[in-house]
Structures are given as C-alpha cells and as structure tokens.
Nucleic acid binder design. Structure first.
Lengths: 236, 236
DNA sequence: CCAAAAGTGTTACAAATACACCCATGG
DNA sequence: CCATGGGTGTATTTGTAACACTTTTGG
C-alpha cells in the first residue's frame, strides 16, 4: 500500500443526502429533518451526513437511513452527485444523492422521535437548505423514470396490498389517472402478484382482495414490467 | 461567506472519469489513454482528472474532454459516482463518472496525438486500472438503457448519415439484429429525420439517401423515440 | 443482366384503450 | 334495495413482426 499522496490537489468533504419516499395511501411523501449543524441549524433539510473514512457512499447512506428510521435493508439508489462549488455555504462539499423507498406505516413510530423528522407531501413541502430542493425534484423524476420499467413502487406498500391501493399509488406518482380495468389486468399479467384469500373492506363494501409480491417469480418476471405505465413518454 | 469549516470531517480528492464512446461505422468504441500519473503510470485507463477549486464536476468533465479531444459542446452525462474506500491505491479518491458521445471521424486526427489516446472496440479492450473496467461496463449499460428512450445515438454519427448506418449503429449498441423494413419505418415515423437530396454510394450500388436530424422538431418529437428498440426489456 | 443492398408493401398477430357491464355488500 | 367501489368482458383501434417483393445500378 502506497503512502504517497496526490500532491497539489484539492480535497473536499463528501456527503450523502437521502430523499426518503413514503406513501400513506393518499399522497406520495418525503421525509425531512431539521438540520442539526450550523450553518442554517433548525432549517428543513434532507437527511444526510458525511462519508466516513472506511465506508463507501452506499454504506454511508445505509448508516444514515438506519440512524434516522431504525430500518435496515431499505431500497436505496444513488442517482446523482451535486458538485457546484458554492452549494454548501460553509465549505465546499460534494454531495452524493440517494433516494430510498420505505413502507411509511410500518415504521411511522420509530421515525418521528429522533431527528424532529416529519413527512411532507411531495406537492407541498417547506423550503429546503442549499440545493436540497433541486435534489428532491430530481429524485422525483428519477423515481418516475425508473418505475416505468422496474417494479420498485411496491417498496412503498405494506406486504399485503390491494390493486386499487397500488393504482392510487401509481396515480399519485405519475400525477394522472389510469383506467382501473386496464391497470388491474396489466398488473396481474406480470405474474408478480399472488392473490390472497382475505379482503380489505375499509375502502368499500364489496372489499378488495389483498395481494402479495411473488418474490419467487420476481426476477424472472421483472422484464414484464415494461409498458405498465400508459404513455411513459411523458415521464422520460 | 462563512470562513468556518466542518470540523472533524475527512476530506478526499474528487476526480472525474470519462467514458468516451465513438462509432466508426463498424464497431462501438471507447477512447482510452495511457495514464500519466503514478501509481500505474503507463497503464491503460479512462481519461480523467481532479476537480479544481472553482469548477463543478460538469465543468471538469468538459475541460478534460476538451483537453483530450479539442472538442467543446460534446454530449456528456454524469452516470455514477464510485466511492469504494480503496478504489484508488494511492489515496482515497471519489470518482464521478461521465459518459460522452462523439463523432469519431470528425475528430480522429486531433485526438490521437496528445495523450497517447487510442480507440478500442467495446468488445475488446485492454485491462484498465483501478475500477475503470467496472465503470466502462456500467457506462455501456447506461448507454443502452438511455438510448431505448432518448435520441442520443445520433451524437455518434456525422451530421449526414444513412438509415442503414443508423441501423448498424443500433445493432452494435444492442448486440442484436433488426429487420431493416421495420427499423426504417420506425425511425422515419418519429419525424426526427430530414431526407437529403444526395445519396451515399459507398455501401451499395443503389445508394442510400442521407438524412439529417431535424433539430427544429427535435424537442417536440423526442417522446416519439420510445419503443424504437425492439424488446427494450432486455436492456433495462 | 445479375448480384447486392435499399427501400416498400402486405398480412397476420398482439397490444392498448375505452367503456359497458356485472358483482358484492353495508347501511 | 340501492349506492358504491371492485372487478370482468369485449369491440375497436393501433402497433408490431415477419417476410415477400420491387428498385437501383456498378461491374
């Protein structure tokens, strides 16, 4: 192992920031925290932190998310690195941005306490520090883009969910409405859903069957997920 | 402007590495250079460099590319940031990876001299330093992914090109064969191509009409680019 | 005139959309 | 018994894929 360093090069702090998405059955939401550091202490921001000496960015993102939510093995994806020299007013900091998808209900309790964290609708959230607003916008676009061809939105739902709930999630993510008949048939045609015996009767008198993701066929049928979103053109 | 710094945080050198794609009419190629720095001086690597104090990563990538090729306003896109703590044997370095698309013929001369740069087929290139091999693989996938729904491969072709040439480019990028009739009709149906009056007769006796990208209708018709690649499932 | 590549036409099939209709049940 | 949301059926239209066919022209 060499001990020499690259001479005459600048070095910067490198951070990870996480856009955490959740879905409460009504609205797509993001999780924000009140910033603990100066500058701008107390302002709303994304959950983030610096990359430590012996961890990768992925590991840092996992650590930060576990710290905030108490959750491990969360879906997360690096999507862009923000590098404008003056993006952080304190000191030049490179930020590697991630988005995460979590089941909001399952973990609602464990979250809110620690960091003064709070869920906000993606359509109405407070002003954020630095370029975090830009990060959120980009994360939302990436989520739309990715979900046209990958079965990732299930990560936002409980283990058992109904097709009408799934549809309302898609409608909220894509800010549009789908025909229920066509939506249902497309989803079922992927072979990804396993029908359960029980129904959810909270939403209607007839009740809607619960489904689970079929993890056995998950990998084999993932490619069928293409074209699930009508007119994906608009989101790409 | 605050002069205070984040205390007790590690700082790392931050680099940009570029995967430069070109197409010579036969094969999709990448541009590699012989590394000028220790360690591993003289080994094949991607073109890269450190991010300077007053530039963003985008600016650094443009600068590095202009330096290597003499070209400005090249298509480039940040696609992933590589962060494994030991990826660089000299010193921990974060690398923000970009891919670029250039018209190989137009600039072939100005390139090769400066940095001992050389084009290699994407199917057969030498072993690369650090994690650069991984970067190339990921860039290739991203190119395939993106080009299923965005008209970016034109960046690899001269201003005037024939549909058979365009087809062979697509076939090379996706490592498959397309029906020429269907391919031609799909491309023309986008409204993105302007037929020219002259033909390219180098490839056949009949000759193939040249086309140009219709930059007026480019933005309006971009969305039509979806589904141009048969079975895009395989590449997503 | 013929080989070889460019380009067009045709047909069978698969898919997406729109929308009408039936189902189940709590109140 | 009826309003309400869940779920199914189906006709129309559109898109896709395969492949046969015509065109052009240098040698």
């Amino acid at each position: 192992m060499a001990s020499a360093k690259y001479s005459n090069q600048s070095r910067y702090t490198v951070a990870v920031d996480c856009i955490v998405f959740g879905y409460d059955g009504q609205n797509l939401k993001i999780l924000l925290v009140k910033r603990a550091l100066t500058p701008l202490k107390g302002k709303w921001s994304l959950m983030g932190g610096f990359i430590a000496k012996n961890e990768s960015a992925d590991e840092a993102a996992s650590r930060i998310l576990a710290d905030l939510t108490g959750l491990k093995d969360i879906y997360q994806e690096q999507f862009y690195t923000f590098t404008k020299p003056d993006r952080d007013t304190q000191e030049r900091t490179i930020s590697i941005a991630y988005f995460s998808l979590i089941d909001i209900k399952k973990y609602k309790e464990s979250i809110s306490t620690a960091y003064q964290a709070q869920w906000f609708s993606i359509k109405d959230y407070p002003e954020l520090i630095f370029d975090h607003g830009e990060m959120v916008k980009m994360a939302q676009k990436r989520l739309q883009y990715k979900a046209t061809s990958h079965a990732i939105l299930f990560e936002l739902l409980p283990d058992k969910f109904t097709i009408p709930l799934l549809q309302s999630l898609f409608e909220d993510v894509y800010e549009t409405n789908f025909d229920k008949g066509n939506f249902s048939r497309k989803m079922l045609s992927t072979g990804l859903l396993q029908k359960q015996k029980d129904k959810d009767k909270t939403g209607s008198k007839k009740g809607a069957y619960f489904y689970k993701l079929d993890k056995k066929n998950y990998q084999q049928n993932l490619h069928k997920f293409l074209k699930l979103v009508p007119n994906p053109n608009n989101f790409i």
